[in-house]
């Protein structure tokens, strides 16, 4: 148990990712308000993006732009750019999903006059 907690403290970024991910799922599952569900969903998506970024973090490294064209390239002083690029695409996907979901929530509100899931299910009958 002690070693487990020590392992978490050595890698606080991964611990933060797990916390955010589970927090997002918790909000998604327990809240009845549709917009709150969406907030949980977005938190979960963001935590995955955070995970991708954190895998490329490196202490003392710089942005992946060549400092000089004449010297030999030293890969160890640059961070890995690929996870950041994946992150950009994942953010775009997340924003598009959020847009569609807000449009659906808006249409549900206009149709049933409520955003509470239980209330909507009651009015659907």
């Amino acid at each position: 148990m002690f070693e487990l907690i020590q392992g978490w403290l050595e890698r606080p970024n991964y611990f933060a990712f797990v916390l955010l991910f589970l927090w997002g799922i918790y909000i998604m599952v327990t809240r009845y308000n549709l917009v709150k569900k969406l907030i949980g969903m977005y938190l979960m998506q963001t935590s995955v993006i955070f995970f991708l970024v954190t895998t490329s973090a490196k202490q003392g490294a710089t942005v992946p732009i060549l400092l000089s064209t004449t010297e030999a390239i030293q890969p160890e002083i640059y961070t890995n750019p690929l996870p950041h690029v994946l992150t950009l695409t994942a953010i775009v996907v997340g924003v598009a999903t959020l847009g569609v979901s807000l449009a659906l929530a808006d249409a549900i509100y206009k149709k049933y006059g409520s955003l509470d899931e239980e209330e909507i299910l009651k009015r659907m009958e």
Binding site: F21, I25, L86, V93, S101
Partner: peptide
């Protein structure tokens, strides 16, 4: 419209959950 909106919303929540898990798995493999 109507009930389909609620069904679509549920599909979206679960589908996005699945997609996030998939992306997380891709992150692990990478």
């Amino acid at each position: 419209g109507g009930k389909a909106l609620v069904a679509g919303f549920r599909y979206l929540i679960l589908g996005t959950f699945g997609a996030s898990l998939y992306l997380l798995g891709v992150g692990y493999l990478y």
